[in-house]
Amino acid sequence: MTTYGGRRGQAERDAITVEIGYALCSAVFAAVVVFGAVAGPVLLFELPGGLERALPVAGAVLAGLLFVARVVSVLVRFQRPGQPSQPGRTNPDS
């Protein structure tokens, strides 16, 4: 982000805000899809009592884990510095 502990500029703060928003929105979407895939059969089929109670719990646990994993992976990937320029190639930041 910044070098030598300097203050962040407006563009960097905006980029961080957008990346956090993307991480949260994509994590919510992925968690909802996983929860629906795991707990959805309870709404569609007659299942035994134990399975009918276990699927929504399992779906919620998996959705929560996926949510956290997605947010962390997006934000960690955002922190990594870009690939350095190679000699003889055009620098995309120039």
Rank of each mutant, 00 (worst) to 15 (best):
P81R: 13
E52K: 01
I16C: 06
V18A: 10
G40I: 01
A54F: 03
D93V: 08
R8Y: 05
G36L: 07
S73F: 00
D93T: 10
G88K: 09
Q86N: 03
F29Y: 07
D93W: 01
V76L: 05
L65G: 12
S85Q: 14
F45N: 00
F29D: 15
I16G: 02
G36E: 02
A23Y: 05
P56V: 09
L47K: 03
E19S: 15
S94I: 07
S94C: 06
V28L: 15
A58I: 02
P56Q: 05
L66C: 02
P41C: 13
A58P: 00
R70N: 04
G64Y: 05
L51I: 14
R53S: 08
Q86H: 07
R13D: 13
A31W: 03
V71I: 10
T2C: 13
R89D: 14
L43A: 12
E19Y: 01
N91F: 09
G50A: 13
A39N: 01
R13N: 12
L24R: 09
P92E: 04
I20P: 02
E19C: 11
V28E: 02
T17A: 06
L51S: 06
G88Y: 13
Q79E: 08
E52T: 06
S85P: 15
Q10H: 09
V61C: 06
A37F: 02
L62K: 11
S73L: 09
P87Q: 13
T17E: 10
P87A: 14
L43D: 12
P81N: 01
T2L: 11
A15C: 10
V34W: 01
A23R: 08
G6E: 12
T17Y: 08
G59S: 10
A11D: 12
V32W: 11
E19P: 06
G21D: 08
R53L: 09
P41W: 13
A58F: 02
E19L: 11
P81C: 15
P48N: 13
V61T: 03
L24D: 07
P84N: 01
A60P: 01
E52C: 05
G5A: 14
V76G: 03
A69S: 14
R13Q: 14
E12K: 03
L47E: 02
P87K: 06
M1I: 12
A54E: 02
M1E: 15
G88N: 11
Q83K: 11
R53T: 03
P81K: 15
G50R: 04
T3N: 11
D93R: 08
S94D: 09
G88F: 04
I20C: 06
Q10Y: 09
T2H: 10
S73G: 10
E12S: 07
G5L: 15
A54R: 00
F67K: 00
A27G: 08
L44Y: 01
A69V: 07
R70V: 07
A60I: 12
T3P: 14
P92C: 08
R77P: 03
A27R: 03
L43M: 14
A39E: 03
V74H: 04
V71W: 03
A11H: 09
R53A: 10
R70E: 07
R7C: 14
A58H: 00
T90F: 08
L75F: 04
G82T: 15
P87M: 11
G5I: 15
L47V: 00
M1A: 14
A37G: 09
A27I: 07
L47N: 00
G49Q: 10
G88W: 12
P56C: 12
S26Y: 10
L62E: 00
T90K: 00
P81E: 10
Q10N: 04
V32H: 13
F45E: 06
G21K: 01
